[in-house]
């Protein structure tokens, strides 16, 4: 069973008294993938992860992990996963080595295995030098790594990490990210985050959630393509402001424009095309016709941030309109 699907979520819904946290979502994750679950706070990421980790049952729909149902074969599933909840709760009164041994024993490892695995994951997460320290006295970065070591201690097939880098400083974020990247291949990893660059750097694929629904899913390139029907061109041109405004307004291919002053006589124009046209040749020929100085002409590639804003915006606009 090296290949195949690790996570299969079908029509999953979770309702709490009064509100729906997750509404009818479906997605799959293949073995060995690192998938990012993205979305603003309150999008239903944590709820989804809790259901995957067998902490909460869904209201309806099915979730299978490694082919096993999370509700009916919960014990078997829990043996196969490593879960790190949001805010990484730990027993602060224990020593690192002691804690990992305790967790390994809880996860069903034998005494000998738990000692061996404890040493391996401490090495892997770079916490061997603090193994005798009390967890409550460790810095946040170290605690986070202890949480990761705990999730890894039973050699899980699937790692579920809820906001693993929250509250860390940039260096710590980098080291945790590096650690997660190093896990690819041997483990399947599902990470939730609302920090976009993080997802872009670590994940093969992304699932964007908003208000309990999946708004978009796919690789970074796929998501780029999703945006391609709204191409944007940036042009820096030295010309009178009125001329520029008039010209863009008259050009039929341009749907939307925004002109802002740049250094010197130049103005920075952000032009959005109708129907996904590439505006560069049009802008160039216009500039030549009118004798404007053109010093920059670029087709913007959408960053994940734009995609994210794009897919999570429709509701905001509605709210503004209301």
């Amino acid at each position: 069973m090296r290949n195949g699907l690790m996570i299969q979520v079908a029509n999953l819904t979770k309702r709490y008294a009064g509100h729906t946290a997750v509404s009818n979502i479906s997605f799959t994750v293949e073995r060995g993938e690192i998938v990012g679950l993205l979305g603003p706070n309150g999008a239903g990421k944590s709820t989804t992860m809790r259901i995957l980790a067998c902490f909460l049952p869904g209201t309806s729909g099915t979730v299978r992990i490694a082919g096993l149902d999370v509700f009916h074969q919960s014990d078997e599933v829990r043996r196969r996963i490593g879960y790190m909840p949001e805010n990484n709760p730990l027993h602060l009164d224990m020593r690192v080595r002691e804690y990992l041994k305790f967790r390994a024993r809880l996860k069903g490892l034998s005494r000998k295995q738990s000692r061996g695995r404890g040493d391996i994951v401490m090495e892997q997460c770079g916490i061997t030098d603090v193994s005798r320290r009390i967890i409550g006295q460790l810095s946040k970065g170290y605690r986070q790594r202890v949480g990761l070591a705990d999730a890894l201690v039973n050699e899980p097939e699937l790692l579920i990490l809820d906001e693993p880098t929250i509250g860390l400083d940039p260096n710590q974020i980098r080291s945790v990210r590096q650690l997660i990247k190093g896990l690819a291949g041997n483990h399947t990893v599902l990470i939730s985050t609302h920090i976009l660059p993080e997802a872009e750097m670590t994940c093969n694929r992304m699932v964007i959630m908003y208000e309990g629904r999946i708004m978009a899913a796919g690789t970074s390139e796929n998501l780029q393509r999703l945006m391609s029907n709204t191409n944007q061109v940036i042009a820096e041109i030295a010309a009178p402001l009125a001329d520029l405004n008039e010209c863009w307004a008259q050009t039929a291919e341009i749907q939307q424009f925004d002109v802002s002053p740049a250094e010197g006589e130049y103005f920075r124009c952000a032009l959005t095309a109708r129907n996904g046209l590439d505006l560069r040749p049009i802008v160039y020929s216009l500039a030549r016709e009118r004798g404007w100085y053109l010093r920059e002409l670029t087709l913007t590639r959408y960053s994940l941030e734009d995609i994210y804003v794009h897919v999570t915006r429709p509701d905001e606009e509605k709210e503004e309109g209301a």
């Binding site: 067998c54 829990r78 996963i81 879960y83 909840p85 709760p89 730990l90 602060l92 809880l106 996860k107």
Partner: peptide, 14 residues
């Protein structure tokens, strides 16, 4: 309160 209940209940214990 501390959230360790969640890590406890996601291990294979009944």
């Amino acid at each position: 309160f501390s959230g360790t209940f969640e890590t406890l209940m996601t291990t294979p214990v009944s």
